[in-house]
Design a protein around this nucleic acid. Structure first.
Lengths: 335, 335
DNA sequence: GGTCCGCATGACAGCGGTTACATTCGCTCG
DNA sequence: CGAGCGAATGTAACCGCTGTCATGCGGACC
């Protein structure tokens, strides 16, 4: 019932091979012939059958984004960035959530789920070990890491250490000396970015000879509630920190709330700075180190598509793109 | 190089047809035979080629979610809900963003993009006219509307009018009388849910004989910044409203900010209630009418898959699922 | 003028499954 | 005891494209 390439071929008085070539913009087709075929295809409202095309060509026509979880601001932004980066290519974006090991462990390994159906994979915010255990390197397709860096694997990420340095230097600039930290998981973790941010934080403190008590570091689970509890604990310390660097904006929101509840004015008695550049940071006057998350997705998409195209081409280097972060100083740090 | 069903057939000493039947769990396969085939397939680490399967069976093996935009809390929750609702089915979820007409108009109609590659479509938060103009009804596949109701099309949505009634009744209960409104677009709009919420708002005011000045209604563009501006305008009125119903939580955040800037304490001088049940509503003490967004996605997925399966079955009714909203009273309304 | 070359095109064998239809075989039943 | 039946399995024709190889043809070249 649906039209096939044969119908077009017949209508144009050419062979199916020529139609196929013409429609895909391959070389060695007479411009006139191509124009005619394209016109006829449009008149007939014909469009190629992806499954047939994929079967015949051996390409999956899809790539997958593998992430520990769906939801949250970061995920959405990455996803939107990927989607926009994929526009120029005729490729579908598939999604696979693994769940976090030990928390929401997913019964199916990513490997099994996406095997044979993708030409490449973007792995988002997963430690290398997890990427391995999910079998993503055994898929025989290119892999691009997003938000993480690892030797020998192409990746796109930010300078986590540098971003943390900026954040903490900012606090020092503003005259704060007793600087606390809200991390994600308890440190050290399997997540490289967290460790990098910790390093940045510590480096600045050392550089300025400021206190680095471990008591000043509290995990906040990367969510609002966790941030609130972490800040509660920090505010109960004596002496309490006069400033706090939160590894995410969402935790910082929780921290802001804890401060409000106690009548502590952000930026005066206690300063706080987040990390991410979340949508609402501006709304809530939260200073933050913004990372270009959409851009991360976009670049990852391009990097991956390049590698897919270049499988047979010259041996590509192990590209590793590092994007810059940007500091936004707002009222929560007294600006 | 990759295994085919033939390799499995050979290894099991049966025909490819039997392997196909066994692996798909069809009837009329001897339990022993099936077990043997499944075991061998696993040993061989064989998995079916989706493109071959799709081509041969004529099924696309995918459904699409069509949305005006990617991003924001609502979108992400719906997406996560769909994904989880789709788990039991072996179906890929494709995404197509149309852009808003006149704002971010997308050059490609959804119709062209997803034609021949989906077995069904979930249309999210789009007015019926837009769904039509995108050609989604000409795709010859089932369509399920999400967040909108329309005669003759299956849909899953909430009771927008009822939710608005709850919100405004709550304000009245708390003793507020001069009640303003922050809508999305300027009213009336092409979006049915907004109009429904407006109706609910007006109904309650009428019922209690409260003022319904049009001056009390301001559009807030459904984003934080718009909400802030809208609230600014409302707070400049004399007499100013003593309470405001915002059609989304994100706009309400903006409104909260406007109040903070002017030193107006939420819930005391001026109350505000949002709509959505956004993640951060609790954090910022915002009263709200929560809608089960993930559930919306999940139900839509099931509804759609049912219809896809039932195309040939008995003529399904035009199911239209309406999910309940829930009021959360917090400090922003003086609780 | 004949040979060779390269471009435009055609013919056709797959790609890896699914499924309609045919076949086999052990039983039930008249 | 043979017809008839249903469950289990096999056979083979597609599904709609792509890619390889073959073919035709006009022009450059010697």
């Amino acid at each position: 019932m649906a039209l096939t390439i044969r119908d077009v071929a017949r209508a144009a008085g050419v062979s199916t091979a020529t139609v196929s070539r013409a429609l895909r913009g391959l070389e060695n087709v007479d411009p006139d012939t191509r124009a005619r075929i394209v016109r006829i295809a449009e008149e007939l409202r014909f469009s190629i059958s992806p499954s047939a095309s994929r079967l015949a060509s051996g390409r999956a026509g899809s790539i997958a984004i593998v992430t520990p979880f769906i939801g949250g601001w970061y995920f959405t932004e990455v996803f939107a960035g990927l989607e926009s980066g994929l526009q120029p290519y005729d490729v579908d974006l598939l999604l696979h959530a693994t769940g976090m090991p030990g928390v929401t462990a997913h019964p199916v390994r990513a490997h099994e789920r996406i095997r044979r159906r993708v030409d490449g994979v973007v792995v988002m915010g997963m430690p290398l070990e997890m990427t391995e255990s999910e079998g993503l390197f055994d898929l025989d397709v290119p892999v691009v890491l997003l938000g993480v860096q690892a030797p020998g694997v192409p990746s796109v990420c930010i300078d986590d250490r540098g971003g943390a340095v900026d954040a903490v230097e900012h606090l020092v600039d503003r005259g704060f000396e007793r600087i606390g930290l809200i991390s994600g998981r308890p440190l050290p973790t399997m997540f490289v970015p967290e460790n990098d941010r910790l390093d940045g934080y510590l480096d600045v403190l050392h550089k300025h000879g400021l206190p680095t008590d471990e008591a000043l570091r509290e995990p906040g689970e990367f969510d609002v509630r966790g941030g609130e509890l972490a800040m509660d604990r920090l505010l109960s310390l004596r002496p309490r920190p006069t400033a706090v660097f939160s590894m995410s904006d969402e935790m910082a929101y929780g921290a802001l709330r804890a401060m409000n509840r106690r009548g502590v004015v952000p930026g005066r008695e206690v300063a706080i700075i987040g990390f991410d550049g979340h949508d609402l940071a501006d709304t809530f006057d939260l200073s933050t180190v913004a990372q270009p998350v959409r851009e991360l997705g976009r670049v990852a998409a391009n990097l991956l598509m390049e590698r897919i195209a270049g499988v047979s081409a010259s041996p590509l280097g192990t590209d590793s793109v590092v994007l810059a972060t940007q500091l936004y100083a707002r009222r929560s740090t007294g600006c």
